[in-house]
Amino acid sequence: MNRNEKVLMRRDHTYTGMDARTPVIDAQDLRKTFGSFVAVNDISFSVFPGEVFGFLGPNGAGKTTTMKMIQCVSPKSGGSLKVFGREAGIYQRSIKKRLGVVPQETNLDTEFTCFENLLVYSRYFGIPKQEATGRIEELLGFVQLEEKRDVLIERLSGGMKRRLVLARALINNPDLLVLDEPTIGLDPQARHLIWEKLKVLQAQGNTIVFTTHYLEEAERLCNRLVIMDEGKILVEGSPAGLISGHVGSDIVEAEHTPEVIACIENMGVSYEVFGDMVQIFTDNPREVAKNLFDTCNPGHVFARRGSLEDVFLKLTGRALKD
């Protein structure tokens, strides 16, 4: 059996009386205010066992605040939030016992080695030392840090630290993994390695919730996602469903000239202008491109697959956030 195929999280929900129809997280009109500022504005969503569920949105959209409420460290201001079927504001300890958390900021104990970090953390869960030791060796293997076992945190690269935080989040065999910007600030190699690990966990049928503003990350990992902006959920769906529903399967881009615009207006297709470029959302890129070339001297024309980025920009606008 390959080391990476070991089961790192609990998948058997039967002992808690949960089945595939019982949501792991159930939020109804969830609200969070800081003074007069509404950070999370009456959002509703459900996450089911075995799903990888993403929260996508620009800075300040309310993603991290939502994660903190799920983690039972920040009390809600209104609505209801149930995790494992229990009210998050009341059953904090029993919920937190079954959560694995990767915070946005890497908060490892810099005075300790990799092994010691995980051991100290295992004590917070009350895991007996012998059991913890075996599990730590297994987890260090999973995140490919066996060779760094006795190395101090300050000597690790950013990607290694992130992987160690992931291993730390798995120390208690969590039923639900919550990650806030898991690959923030990492180089492409390090990001791919984290994705690979999350894919393994996903393949094992684990329930994972994460936030990101990397669209590629959401597209690769999520079964389902929501796009948030200014505290509200704008849309919810699968990556493919959102793309075909909001921008069409393909996008044709042409130079922004009056002739081109006139042409497109004649064709009666939906389009948007971004600076010196026109984007035409379509399920039939060949025909659109051919029409453009035949009738309106468009200069450069590109046809490409629609992406989550297109959906995101269409919904949240191109204005710079904060």
Partner: peptide, 14 residues
Amino acid sequence: YQKTFDAMIATPLA
């Protein structure tokens, strides 16, 4: 600075 408390309260610790 070290966010140690944040790491701790992400566990069953209050």
